[in-house]
């Protein structure tokens, strides 16, 4: 990796607003981040945090009713102003996506091999049928499907949930994309199968040197997979840092509380209570003027946090948190760990 290389993907001040019956609903507001080659960025958030909307904005898959502002650049090229045709050329070839629901994303009446070959053909039509078939088998092998020569002619329903998710991954890497976006790729899977699929993702990323953007609500998944982590709350970035910093030095109260609210397999069980964050995320049509988390925050200063938007503060040059109380949070964190 060269040092002065520009990032693969740059999201700059991205906002997505939907118009609803209840007025404009802000799904994403002022979101900025970068994704570099060979890097895995985990975007974590609860339902309604805007994490999936962000991935759809990058893929150009948002409905026309969504007002998208800001900038999304792939290798310096602006994506938001591209036509549908130009985007289609980019999608699948340079940027591709693994969806949560593999069964819905695969065509039930076409063999898996045909669907893989189609994915290859769309972007390189000069290959012969035999070459493409060989590529399909190779792809199935990469994602760890046993006896790919035989299974290549089977249909999606003949595969189990975990296997279908692998096929989705195979399709998404068919053209060696630079950026792979995985939106809750394991949410629908059982835990032992999830472990397999995460392994496959890890392996595939290493093999193809692509950048991986993984969107999930599960901090555990991020802990095992991501190099950097971006925490979203109610459409905004609340914290972004290297994975260790987010888990060991969380600086936004939301991140801190979220970690304290999670029951853990390895922590001390039973008698110690979980921290329960009061309240619920705000309605996207009635967002508070200040910090979105302020109404639920135990560090919030009335009159400040809840009044005006909170700027992002740098803790280190690779660690930002959108909070006015990072010093208090740090003090509390240190007290808790000592």
């Amino acid at each position: 990796m060269t040092l002065n290389q520009q990032p693969l993907l740059t999201v700059d001040n991205l906002s997505v607003v939907f118009s609803t019956d209840n007025g404009p609903a802000t799904s994403v507001e002022g979101l900025s981040f970068e994704l570099n080659a060979n890097e895995t960025l985990g975007v974590v958030g609860e339902s309604g945090s805007g994490k999936s909307i962000t991935s759809m904005a990058i893929m150009g898959l948002l409905p026309r009713t969504a007002a998208v502002t800001g900038s999304i650049r792939f290798r310096g090229e602006e994506l938001l102003t591209k036509t549908d045709d130009q985007l289609r050329d980019l999608r699948g070839r340079r940027i591709s996506m693994v969806f949560q629901d593999a069964l819905a994303a695969l065509n039930p009446v076409k063999s898996v091999g045909n669907q893989l070959m189609e994915a290859v053909r769309v972007h390189s039509s000069d290959r012969s049928r035999r070459e493409m078939r060989a590529r399909a088998i190779e792809l199935l092998d990469i994602v760890g499907i046993p006896t790919p020569e035989q299974r290549v002619d089977q249909f999606p329903h003949e595969f189990s949930g975990g296997m279908r998710q692998r096929i989705m991954i195979a399709m998404s890497i068919a053209n060696d994309p630079d950026v792979l976006i995985a939106d809750e790729p394991t949410t629908a899977l059982d835990v032992t199968v999830q472990a397999q699929v995460l392994d496959v993702l890890r392996r595939v990323q290493r093999r193809t040197n692509s950048a991986l953007l993984i969107i999930t609500h599960d901090l555990g998944v991020v802990a095992g997979l991501a190099d950097r982590v971006l925490v979203m709350y109610s459409g905004k970035k609340v914290e972004e840092a290297d994975v260790e910093d987010v888990f060991y030095r969380p600086s936004h109260p939301y991140t801190l509380d979220l970690l304290a609210a999670m029951p853990r397999l390895d922590g001390n069980s039973g008698d110690s209570r979980l921290y329960s964050i009061p309240g619920a995320p705000p309605d996207p049509t009635e967002l508070p003027p200040g910090c979105r988390f302020a109404p639920r925050c135990r560090y919030a200063m009335l009159g400040t946090c809840d009044r005006t938007p909170v700027p992002e503060q740098f803790i280190t040059d690779r660690h930002v948190a959108a909070c006015l109380r990072i010093d208090e949070v740090a003090a509390v964190r240190q007290e808790a760990s000592s």
């Binding site: 189990s160 949930g161 975990g162 296997m163 059982d190 835990v191 032992t192 199968v193 999830q194 472990a195 397999q196 995460l198 392994d199 599960d218 901090l219 555990g220 998944v221 991020v222 802990a223 095992g224 994975v243 260790e244 888990f247 060991y248 970690l259 999670m262 853990r264 397999l265 390895d266």
Partner: peptide
């Protein structure tokens, strides 16, 4: 044992240094 080892733990160092039993196949 396999089930326990498959549950992701929200702690990068622990999570990355665990001995993980990846079961093959599905139920």
């Amino acid at each position: 044992k396999a089930l326990l080892s498959a549950v992701p733990i929200p702690d990068p160092i622990v999570e990355r240094s665990r001995e993980r039993i990846t079961l093959s196949g599905d139920v």
